[in-house]
Amino acid sequence: MRTSLLVAGFGGQGIMMIGKLIGECVFEEGINVTFLPFYGPEQRGGTASCTVIQSDKPIGSPVSEELDVLCVMNQPSLEKFLGRIKQGGVLITNSSLVDIHSVERKDIKIIEVDADRLAYQIGSKKIANIIIFAAYMAIAKTVPIEKVKAIALTKLGKKPELVPMNRAAFDAGVQIAIASQC
């Protein structure tokens, strides 16, 4: 069983952090995983994306033409990658910045996460990516969510002042994911 995820957005939105954290959690669960970043020469403002492949077999290609899950943090990423989601796949959007009215596909599940606005309410726009990360992990269910939380908060522990906010962001993401599946 091979699943592919692509996370995309502006440089500076913490795209790589989302992918890396997912990779770390899946790795800790003993599943084969690769994380491959893709970014241009711009430091900020350009498009950044990363691919996470999970598999029970050794992983050949670290990218995938067809996606099981697409996470988009901005509008250009939605337009660029929407067509690559498999039938029955999942689209997770940062609905603060992404408008899905133009999406005509009926064969995918869409989960909207108002990540930027929620992050702002919690206290920092910097943690929008953690909300999206938590939402993805709660939907994917490949790793028990409490274990995910413990791994993520350890990894994010380098900035202790942000830990309470990261914890709140994580919980918010999980809640949205659970609500979306009701």
Binding site: K20, N32, L36, P37, P62
Partner: peptide, 9 residues
């Protein structure tokens, strides 16, 4: 460059 950038176990 893919091997340089990739993360894997």
């Amino acid at each position: 460059g893919f091997i340089g950038a990739i993360m894997e176990p």
